[in-house]
């Protein structure tokens, strides 16, 4: 598995850790963690994944 995918997995996993408490029990603390950590971590993970996909597509001559 490419290293970038592993990085994306880690970022998404951290995002999950920041999101699950808010989903289970919403308090000002969990909501703050979700908005300011969870969402950015998910976005970062997706951007890294997207980068990997684009590199892969270019390698196969699709893009």
């Amino acid at each position: 598995m490419p290293t970038t995918i592993e990085i994306a997995f880690i970022l998404t996993g951290l995002g999950l850790l920041a999101t699950i408490p808010c989903l289970l029990y919403t308090t000002p603390i969990t909501m703050t963690i979700f908005f300011f950590l969870g969402i950015p971590l998910f976005m970062a993970g997706f951007i890294v994944y997207l980068y990997t996909v684009i590199v892969d597509l270019r390698r196969h001559g699709v893009m």
């Binding site: 994306a8 997995f9 999950l16 808010c22 989903l23 979700f34 998910f42 997706f46």
Partner: peptide
């Protein structure tokens, strides 16, 4: 699904519920 769709659905659900 794991890195894109799944997190998106989770964020939307958590956003709305919270």
């Amino acid at each position: 699904f794991i890195l894109g769709v799944g997190p998106l659905l989770l964020v939307v659900a958590t956003f709305g519920l919270s």
